[in-house]
Write a protein that binds this DNA or RNA. Structure first.
Length: 131
RNA sequence: UCAGACGGCUGGAUGGCCGCCAUGUCCGGUUUACCGGCAUGGAGGAAAGUCCGGGCUCCAGGAAAACACGGUGCCGGGUAACGCCCGGCGGGGGCGACCCCAGGGACAGUGCCACAGAAAGCAAACCGCCGGCGGGCUUCGGCCUCCGGCAAGGGUGAAAGGGUGCGGUAAGAGCGCACCGCGCCGCCGGCAACGGGGGCGGCAGGGUAAACCCCACCGGGAGCAAAACCGAAUAGGGACUGCGCGGAGCGUCAGCUCCGGGCCCCGUUUUCCGGGCCGGCAGUCCGGGUUGGUUGCAUGAAGUCCGCCGCGAGGCUGGCUCAAGAUGAAUGGUCAUCGCAUGGGGCUUGCCCCAUGUACAGAACCCGGCUUACAGGCCGUCUGACGCC
């Protein structure tokens, strides 16, 4: 899956839908090219200093990346950007639980998302994300 | 055996499944592009803090001096260099091995020295000591007061103007003497810091420079997001042509030459040399450098082994090795087994079982240091006790 690399992509995705789990936070937002054609799903990772030092942040990002490879690859919808935010629990959560967290988060966030014309609506039960 | 001092090394292992980055005289998909295989390589002793010193890059036109600012501060050596390291010296601590020291100058000047104390920089006298045809009182021991001579003893303090002892004296005082300290002048040893010893001086000259300051030495600025190259769009920018020009000269014109003047060119100032600029409008052409890409970017004050020189830091010769290169940032995720510690239990005394823990921490241009963090493990040298011979 292609990676998100620009700060503006992260900021835009943070304005979309959000689901928090003990081991991670998942954000998503539809992103289509100018010609309206659906593009492959993209994924980005965020591990702030809240998680710990450089060692902890790197390890959290690697665990999330591996979880995405196992769980999200088959579930991600084309034309959507996803951002995974690491939390302190990302490091301590048991591996199987972390995988279930991501599964559940993806399921919830896709169900909560209206099927059509989601661009400007926002569901109030999902809190607004910070970058 | 116990207690301790110093120096050095190390920083888990194996396997299964699934992945990431780089490289390639490799294989396949039709050659390139690209895709899939295969092979090889892929974090540290501190990669950290970013505190010093350099390389490298750009900026400032070249050079010198002064000033300002900052840093360093016993001596000698090592080094590309250092505020680092090594070897000494001096002072302090420890029975000792060893450890610690911001360790130039306090007769260049200025400032400060709280509290306590009579007095904190110039000498001073609170309690005291001593003397007196002085005066008063007296229980005849002395007390009070006055005038002199003192600073030994007490007391305050971090520090009270040399210390200890003997002599001396009314009591005292370097007043005299000895030793120690201090100052000055030779001598000897040492490259030096400094050490040793001799003579003279009767003692002046408290501390603080981690207060300003003085002296000596060193120092341009910014940093790989430096910088170079390739390169969509837009504006500024440059060149040429036409109109146009501080003064003078030449010339038909285009223009050229000479003479001044102003401004600008490293923190500041001065001097010398050198250089640039001094307009606007129109047209044409060139160029321009943001997102992105490539280079910088890993062969270097490199590592390692032997030999030689050196007490050592280190140096020299020769051989061998090439050892991560990401950029929202690869070097991993997970599971299992083992190892190692600590505690508990079993017990066939060296095995088994259970539980817990397994640190600090992630390259970002590269080196030399320093500092800080760290579960544990290993090795060497030395010291002091006790025991044995």
């Amino acid at each position: 899956m292609e990676r998100l690399k620009k700060r503006s992509d992260f900021l835009r995705t943070a304005r979309g839908y959000k689901r928090a789990m003990p081991g991670l936070v998942l954000q998503t937002r539809a992103h289509r090219a100018e010609d309206g054609e659906a593009r492959p799903a993209r994924i980005g990772y965020t591990a702030s200093r809240r998680v710990g030092g450089a060692v902890q942040r790197n390890r959290a990002r690697r665990r999330l990346r591996e979880a995405v490879r196992k769980v999200l690859v088959g579930r991600a919808r084309p034309g959507h950007d996803y951002v995974l935010i690491a939390r302190p629990g990302t490091l301590t959560r048991k591996w199987d639980d972390l995988l279930r967290d991501l599964e559940k988060a993806a399921e919830d966030i896709h169900r909560a998302k209206p099927r059509r014309n989601s661009k400007h609506t926002n569901i109030h039960t999902f809190e607004r994300g910070l970058d």
